[in-house]
Nucleic acid binder design. Structure first.
Lengths: 133, 133
DNA sequence: CTAGAATGATTCTAATTGCAATGATTCGAG
DNA sequence: CTCGAATCATTGCAATTAGAATCATTCTAG
C-alpha cells in the first residue's frame, strides 16, 4: 500500500531539486531560474500562454520573464500569424546560442542521472498519466 | 531514449498540480497552501529545520508559517529536550483536529488518483532513488 | 449581423519565497 | 580547557510569484 503524503513530498522534493540544479546553471549565464526555464522551453516559437503552460506558471509571470529576456536581447515579440491578440516569442540568434549553452550545462549532473534510461522512461510514462492538462 | 527536459517539465507540472489541490482544500479550512503543507507534515513533533526539510523550503520560510499557525493556536514552540538551540513544534489539540480534517479533504480527488496503487508504488520507488543524493 | 462570452496579453498589487546577516548554542581539533 | 567552526532559529530585505482587473481581439449563439 502506498502512502500518498510521502509521494507528494517526493514529487515536490524532486521538483525543487531540479529547480535548484537549473538555478545554478542559469546563474553562470547571468540568468535567473525562471529565465533559464523559459529559455529551455523555447525550442521553437511559442505564444506567451503556451510558455506559461510549459513553465506551469501564471501568464503574468511569463510576461515578466519574457520582458527580461527581451531586454537582454535574447528574444523578440512578433505578431502572431492568424491571431492578432497573441504574440509569438522567438529567440534571437544570441538567444538561440545561449540556449544551446544552457542545455549543455543542464545535461551535466542532472538530478535524474541516478535513474537508468529505462527507469526514466517508466517514470515519464507514469507522470504523463498523472498530469491532466 | 528518454527526453530529460520533458521529464523535468512533467515533474514540475505534477508538483504544481499537487500544490493547487492542496491550496483549494487548505483554503476551505482558512489556511494557505504552505500552512496546509506544514500541518500535513506535522504527524509528530518536528524541529523547524526538519519541517523545512519536509516542505523543501528555507528555514526562514518554515519560521514564517510556524508563526502563522502559532498565532492561530494550532501549534506551540517548545524547548527541544537535549538541544537548547532547537525548538520543537507540537500541534495543539485544535491543530491535531484540524490536521485530521485536512487529511480527510486531501484524500479526496487526489491528483495521484489516476494511478493504480501498484503504479504509485513504482513511482514512489523511482522518485525515492532520484531524490536521495 | 450582432451582442455577449471567451481568449490572449498586460498591468498592478499583495503574498510568498529565497537569501544574507545575526545571535545563541553546540561541537571538535589541538 | 578553549577557541574557532558549525548548527539552529530568527530577522530584514529583495525578488519571484499568483491573482484580480483591464484592454483588445476572436468566437459563437440566435
Amino acid at each position: 500500500m502506498s502512502d500518498e503524503r510521502l509521494l507528494c513530498g517526493l514529487v515536490n522534493g524532486l521538483a525543487k531539486q531540479i529547480e535548484a540544479h537549473l538555478r545554478t546553471r542559469a546563474a553562470t549565464l547571468g540568468l535567473t531560474a525562471s529565465q533559464g526555464a523559459a529559455l529551455r522551453e523555447l525550442s521553437g516559437p511559442l505564444t506567451l500562454r503556451e510558455l506559461a503552460g510549459r513553465m506551469a506558471c501564471e501568464p503574468s509571470n511569463a510576461t515578466f520573464v519574457a520582458d527580461r529576456l527581451e531586454e537582454q536581447g535574447y528574444l523578440e515579440r512578433r505578431p502572431h500569424p492568424g491571431n492578432r491578440r497573441a504574440k509569438q516569442l522567438v529567440l534571437t540568434p544570441e538567444g538561440a546560442e545561449l540556449r544551446e549553452r544552457l542545455l549543455a550545462l543542464l545535461s551535466q549532473d542532472s538530478p535524474l542521472a541516478p535513474l537508468s534510461p529505462g527507469e526514466q522512461d517508466t517514470l515519464q510514462h507514469l507522470l504523463a498519466r498523472a498530469v491532466t492538462r
